[in-house]
Simulated scan of single mutants.
Amino acid sequence: MGVEIERKFLLSSNAWEDEVEESLSMRQGYLSHDAQSSVRVRICNGLADINVKSTRDGIYRLEYEYPIPMQDARELLNKVAHRPLIEKTRHILRIAGHCWEVDEFHGENKGLIVAEIELGSVDEVFHRPRWLGKEISTDARYYNSNLSKLPYRYWAEGS
Score class of each variant (00 low, 15 high):
Val3Arg: 15
Glu4Leu: 09
Glu4Thr: 10
Glu6Met: 08
Arg7Ala: 03
Lys8Asn: 11
Lys8Gln: 08
Phe9Asn: 01
Phe9Glu: 05
Leu10Met: 07
Leu10Ala: 03
Leu10Cys: 05
Ser12Thr: 14
Ala15Pro: 03
Trp16His: 08
Glu21Ser: 06
Glu22Ser: 11
Leu24Trp: 04
Arg27Leu: 12
Gly29Phe: 05
Tyr30Phe: 14
Asp34Pro: 14
Ala35Tyr: 04
Ala35Ser: 15
Ser38Tyr: 05
Val39His: 01
Arg40Leu: 06
Arg40Tyr: 09
Val41Thr: 04
Cys44Ser: 15
Asn45Glu: 14
Leu47Ser: 15
Asp49Ser: 07
Lys53Phe: 09
Ser54Ala: 15
Arg56Asp: 11
Arg56Val: 14
Asp57Phe: 07
Gly58Trp: 07
Ile59His: 05
Glu63Arg: 12
Pro67Lys: 14
Pro69Asp: 15
Ala73Leu: 13
Ala73Asn: 13
Arg74Tyr: 14
Leu77Gly: 08
Lys79Phe: 12
Ala81Val: 07
Arg83Thr: 13
Pro84Gly: 04
Leu85Thr: 05
Leu85Asn: 06
Glu87Ile: 14
Thr89Asn: 07
Thr89Val: 13
His91Ser: 11
Arg94Ser: 05
Ala96Glu: 13
His98Ile: 00
His98Pro: 00
His98Cys: 06
Trp100Asp: 03
Glu104Cys: 05
His106Val: 01
His106Asn: 10
Asn109Ser: 03
Lys110Ala: 07
Lys110Cys: 01
Ile113Phe: 02
Ala115Ile: 01
Glu116Asp: 09
Glu116Pro: 00
Glu118Thr: 04
Glu118Met: 02
Leu119Thr: 07
Ser121Gln: 14
Val122Arg: 15
Leu132Pro: 01
Leu132Phe: 05
Lys134Val: 10
Lys134Tyr: 00
Ile136Asp: 04
Ser137Met: 08
Ser137Phe: 06
Tyr142Leu: 05
Tyr142Phe: 13
Tyr143Lys: 08
Tyr143His: 09
Tyr143Gly: 08
Asn146Gly: 03
Leu147Ala: 10
Ser148Ile: 09
Ser148Tyr: 03
Leu150Glu: 13
Leu150Lys: 14
Tyr152Val: 06
Trp155Val: 10
Ala156Ile: 01
Ala156Val: 02
Glu157Asp: 10
Gly158Ala: 02
